[in-house]
Design a protein around this nucleic acid. Sequence first.
DNA 1: CGCGTCATTTCTGGATACAATCTACCCTCG
DNA 2: CGAGGGTAGATTGTATCCAGAAATGACGCG
Lengths: 230, 230
Amino acid sequence: MSAPASPPPATDRLRHKTVSAAVTESLRQRILNGEFAPGIQLRQDALAEEFGISRIPVREALLQLEAQGLVRIMPHRGAVVTGLSVEEVEDIFRLREQLEPPLLALSARRFAEADYRRLRSLTDGYGAALAAGQVDRWGELNRSFHLDLLRYADRPRSLSIVSGLLQDCDRPTRLQLSASGDTARADHEHTQIVALCEAGRISEAADLLQAHIAHAAVSLVAIYRQAHAE
Amino acid sequence: MSAPASPPPATDRLRHKTVSAAVTESLRQRILNGEFAPGIQLRQDALAEEFGISRIPVREALLQLEAQGLVRIMPHRGAVVTGLSVEEVEDIFRLREQLEPPLLALSARRFAEADYRRLRSLTDGYGAALAAGQVDRWGELNRSFHLDLLRYADRPRSLSIVSGLLQDCDRPTRLQLSASGDTARADHEHTQIVALCEAGRISEAADLLQAHIAHAAVSLVAIYRQAHAE
DNA sequence: CGCGTCATTTCTGGATACAATCTACCCTCG
DNA sequence: CGAGGGTAGATTGTATCCAGAAATGACGCG
């Protein structure tokens, strides 16, 4: 209300190309971080006022989030943050088990020195975030690592699907696996997958990737079941 | 709370309660029908005037279409209808080959009389549309048939992915396979898949489904390559 | 004659204002 | 005392209007 007429350069933290995209990203992070828990209703007016903008970019952000499956919009009834059922989580991990290993086999052939350096730096950062307990950073690095493994698979649609799967299993992971001790094992497996690729033992790397995803699945599903049984 | 156990069968018949949703559906149909060819730029103002509405619902519709991958929006530069490259089409069919057969194996066990009736009516309508040369109806029925085959797989995320794949390979199919004679073969294979399921020979049905998708893939990719080489 | 620069024009992105719809509470009636 | 309906508040959906970015064209300069 104080500065409606003056062009507010007060878009401090909203420094993207469009306000809509910035709001989308911000809301997405907050949902993934658990600040907006499943079931919570997101009101356009409140969000608009909080960001200091009008409701239009908020609406567009919510639409994009709905497309990504993070919220559900019902006409005239607002947007609600979606949660994943145990069945959905299991399905997501099964899909990852099915999709990622063959893609790795395709991609790993084309790895060069620079790729291995990048992958190692990701696993290093992963371990560091793990030690520091930075759960959100951990999830981000995990997703980057897995996507980077498949980078050269040359299957555009497959990669976009896997990317979506990673995002969605990232959310329950951040929320509930942070207390689990199984992340160290994941870290070790990541390192080993890279080493196998570099040694040219690609099919072994693919097998390990599948086992890695399966391990993460059982660990996460167990915790997820426990949390949902409450 | 957990998700309602009742399946959502009423999603398609639901009347459009908002202008935005109606515009989304209309534009989607027009893109799938080829009225808006890939590369065409969709201007908000023109569409709004054509529909006799303001630009806001048009913008939201375009956002939803972008989320579905049908258009690509670049900031301040408008929305253009996307096309699929040959690599993407191949990838999509490979994914379908990989995903659909195991889902059919899961789903087919639960088929009851009513399901077989529905599937047969779909194949019948398919053949009829084929004979009548109704390409758009054909594509719609094909998609319904494949999704109906997997209806009881109980893999929510898998089904939503397959649904997206079907929509995207439906578009090039409608545009270019209409002239091909391979649709009769597809029709026959559809019928046979249902028959195998009904006879309890589920793994054979899954194998045939995979072969069916593979056949469609080689046929479509060949035509697609030819059209793109011109 | 080609190219860079600037103004105009067009279109999209965002803000404000208004209308339609849903929710909740209260009042009346059986 | 409970059920049904109606009204008021809140919240979303849409229209209109304004500002800013990108495409287009003309003009001047090398």
